[in-house]
Simulated assay, not measured.
Amino acid sequence: MSGRTVVVTGGTRGVGAGIARAFAAAGAEVLTCARRPPEVPVPGAEFRPLDLRDPAAVREFFGGLGRIDVLVNNAGGTPYRRLAEADAERHARVVELNLLAPLAASLAAHDGLSRARGSVIMIGSVSGGRPSPGSAAYGAAKAGVENLARSMAVEWAPDVRVNTLVVGMVRTERSHLHYGDEDGLAAVARTVPLGRLADPADVGAAAVFLASDAAAYISGASLLVHGGGERPAFLDAATADRPAADRTTADRPTVDRET
């Protein structure tokens, strides 16, 4: 990535910081932007303040860049909030940050990316492909991001490639807010086929790959970075495949199981 300029939105902590570090380690000039500066500076990355929900400020920011080769739309997130516990305006703010802000940033960066024949990397989520109780607006926005990326990949080809990283559970400095203490984190990790939560560096490595020449023919794709996914809950509830000795009489099937 030497000689290339990479912008990582929300690249000041967690997954975003991991992505910024990965690009810096690959030799890129990295610029991160967020509303607040990082509590811990990201080595090799320059920070500039930006509210991504302000379209005029976003246009000014990208218009002032001399060059941009890669845009990583990472900024996003949501508090835990059940649908009926908030009004539509609060849920709309989640959609604004997680769907409309990446769209605004991509549009503002389009001309620069076209000149560089660069790429956009959307940071999606497994929440966009399954029910997301407690974060329904976030899941809907992430589903939209993945679809948006596929449409952008068609409209902006061949000058700009657009792909999505569909990210699963990641261990960051704020993981305890989602999964609890170390016991909770360990229990959650056991639900992942690879036996652990992702590290931000795992996501960063995948982002560098999608932006690299090795992925020059990849566009409109969704790359799953989720450790193998989530074990279906019904497998732990079903009794049909348990050893006979482990079943109660009530557990034993009386009819053939459908395949």
Rank of each mutant, 00 (worst) to 15 (best):
G184L: 02
R190W: 10
A189Q: 06
V192I: 15
D181N: 15
D181L: 11
D183N: 07
D199I: 07
R190E: 13
H178Y: 05
A206P: 01
G204I: 12
Y179A: 13
P193M: 15
L185T: 02
T191Y: 10
A187M: 06
D183G: 14
Y179L: 14
P200G: 14
V192Q: 10
D202V: 02
R196L: 10
L177N: 12
A186L: 10
A186M: 09
A206N: 03
A201R: 12
A187K: 09
R190F: 12
P200R: 08
H178C: 01
V203E: 08
V192L: 08
G180P: 02
A189C: 07
V203H: 03
D183A: 15
E182P: 02
D202A: 01
D199R: 15
P200N: 11
E182G: 08
A198Q: 01
E182L: 11
T191W: 11
E182R: 14
D202Q: 03
G184P: 00
L197W: 02
E182H: 06
R190Y: 09
G180H: 03
G195K: 08
A187P: 00
A187F: 04
D183K: 08
E182V: 09
R196K: 12
E182Q: 15
V203M: 09
V188D: 04
A186G: 06
L197N: 02
V188I: 09
L185W: 01
H178P: 00
P193I: 15
G195W: 09
V188R: 15
Y179M: 11
D199N: 10
A205D: 15
P193T: 15
R196C: 08
V203I: 15
H178I: 04
L185A: 04
A189H: 07
A189L: 05
V192H: 07
A205M: 07
G180Q: 07
P193Y: 15
Y179Q: 06
Y179P: 00
A198G: 11
T191S: 14
H178W: 05
A205L: 13
R196E: 09
L197H: 03
V203C: 12
D181E: 13
A206K: 01
V203S: 07
A201S: 14
A187Y: 02
D181Q: 11
Y179W: 04
G204N: 06
D202H: 01
G204T: 10
G184Q: 03
A198F: 00
A186T: 11
R196T: 06
G184S: 04
G204S: 10
A206Y: 03
T191Q: 14
D199Y: 05
P193E: 14
D202E: 04
A189D: 05
E182M: 08
A205H: 12
G195I: 12
A201N: 01
R196W: 03
V192P: 04
A207S: 11
D202W: 00
T191R: 13
L177P: 04
A187T: 13
